[in-house]
Design a protein around this nucleic acid. Sequence first.
DNA 1: TATAAACTATTAATAAGATAACAAAAGAAA
DNA 2: TTTCTTTTGTTATCTTATTAATAGTTTATA
Lengths: 151, 151
Amino acid sequence: MPTDTDQLNNNSIRKLVHVSEAIIKAADRFFAGFGVTTAQYDVLVILKYSKNRLTQSDLGINRVVSRSNITGIIDRLEKTGLVKREGSADDRRVNHITVTKKGIDLINKVEDKYFENVKKLVWFLDEKDKKGLAEILDRLDRGLKRAEDEL
Amino acid sequence: MPTDTDQLNNNSIRKLVHVSEAIIKAADRFFAGFGVTTAQYDVLVILKYSKNRLTQSDLGINRVVSRSNITGIIDRLEKTGLVKREGSADDRRVNHITVTKKGIDLINKVEDKYFENVKKLVWFLDEKDKKGLAEILDRLDRGLKRAEDEL
DNA sequence: TATAAACTATTAATAAGATAACAAAAGAAA
DNA sequence: TTTCTTTTGTTATCTTATTAATAGTTTATA
């Protein structure tokens, strides 16, 4: 049976996850208004700001998602013309993915509004809060790694 | 184009979401070891600790998930015998959902280990950290509501 | 009472993540 | 060179989430 401390610990985590899920849902709604999903927009941004050409595997590593899932995301981005898939000449296993002009235009249209929304979200946090949050999150990250090692 | 403050704000949110997603994935793996998904276990726990009989809509409100999703989750829980679906006599639109003995047994087997894992996760946080985190999360919640109202 | 409005659950699309199995290609080792 | 291993991407299956449409019921209103 759980102790009071157990319940308090659990509540901290639940609250964290709950707020994050609310943020994720808000982001989903926001991007849906521009005809893309959050996952798709993420990929577009990664592609836009990358110095070198990226393969599907590269995108998978960036987004911490399996290659099989990247296939589908690129499929849909390609179908809506936001992205282009080109077979590599050097390595015939590989596809190089690039954003199209349409994709760049979309990002330019979305970006400002996105940062405005983020600003509204963190409105109630001052510099100290943000620092404190970052530190606590780092500690949780360490806790996660510790828990995983002991599994 | 985003300012430095924009980027910092964004990083705070990204970090928050990133840590939460890592926690969610760890939970998914943990519960998968017992043959249920996190969503399914959530429903079981809600049912176990509820004073009154719950309908599918009730569960949807509790889990903040649409009714269409609850249908599928209950389908699968019913198929594995962890839950029972019974049509209401009073209101023939409604299904009453109850945990079976098998469901209760599962919770009892999982619960202790679950709280142990949460403990490992928050190991690096002292009382002050937990309080600080709760407060920051509450502020973010307020920011969310504010952003939604202005949309 | 008859009609309209609201509610409950289901189904069907679409998108995404996880995992497993697979073919093709490339690289390493015998 | 031939064999073994690894890598890349695709396909398939499962679970979950979202939204929209729909069938049955119930409640409210005219």
